[in-house]
């Protein structure tokens, strides 16, 4: 995995998470801004998927556990989609908080993926 990409995704996810938590606590229902932030996180995760497929082919295989890495990545790709559907099920401030929590969870998971990919026996 590429450290720079991991950091970029974590930053995007943290920003999206903080933005949505603030919007939610201000009482805003999910809107274009909050949903757009989650879309950006999902886009970043797709970049991670592409990287995880391509990297081993060009001589950057994981030194850690690839099964665990993919378990995290697949879960991470699913979470923003689930969160958006769930947030739109009841459009109020709590929907926006749901989006924020999902984005923060992605930040943690992507950081964890970096460790699983690079550290032996993590």
């Amino acid at each position: 995995m590429i450290l720079g990409l991991t950091i970029a995704i974590v930053v995007v996810a943290l920003a999206a998470g903080a933005l949505n938590l603030v919007l939610g606590l201000l009482g805003k229902a999910p809107n274009d801004l909050s949903l757009g932030a989650l879309a950006l996180v999902e886009l970043a995760l797709i970049a991670q998927v592409v990287t995880a497929i391509v990297a081993p082919l060009v001589g950057n295989p994981p030194s850690g556990n690839p099964i665990e890495f993919w378990a995290y990545l697949i879960a991470a790709v699913v979470i923003p989609v689930l969160a958006v559907f769930w947030a739109l099920g009841e459009r109020n401030r709590w929907g926006t908080v749901v989006l924020g929590i999902a984005a923060l969870a992605i930040a943690v998971m992507v950081w964890r993926m970096q460790i699983i990919w690079t550290v032996q026996l993590a």
């Binding site: 665990e68 378990a71 879960a75 979470i79 689930l82 969160a83 769930w86 009841e90 709590w94 969870a105």
Partner: peptide, 29 residues
């Protein structure tokens, strides 16, 4: 799952996914 309960649900769902992924990979590998 209404109001604040919806936030609880997303946290449970994320933990369910994370715990499932972790245990499946631990058991498989």
């Amino acid at each position: 799952a209404t109001g604040l309960g919806r936030v609880l649900v997303i946290v449970y769902a994320i933990l369910a996914l994370a715990a499932t992924g972790r245990s499946v990979s631990q058991i498989l590998s």
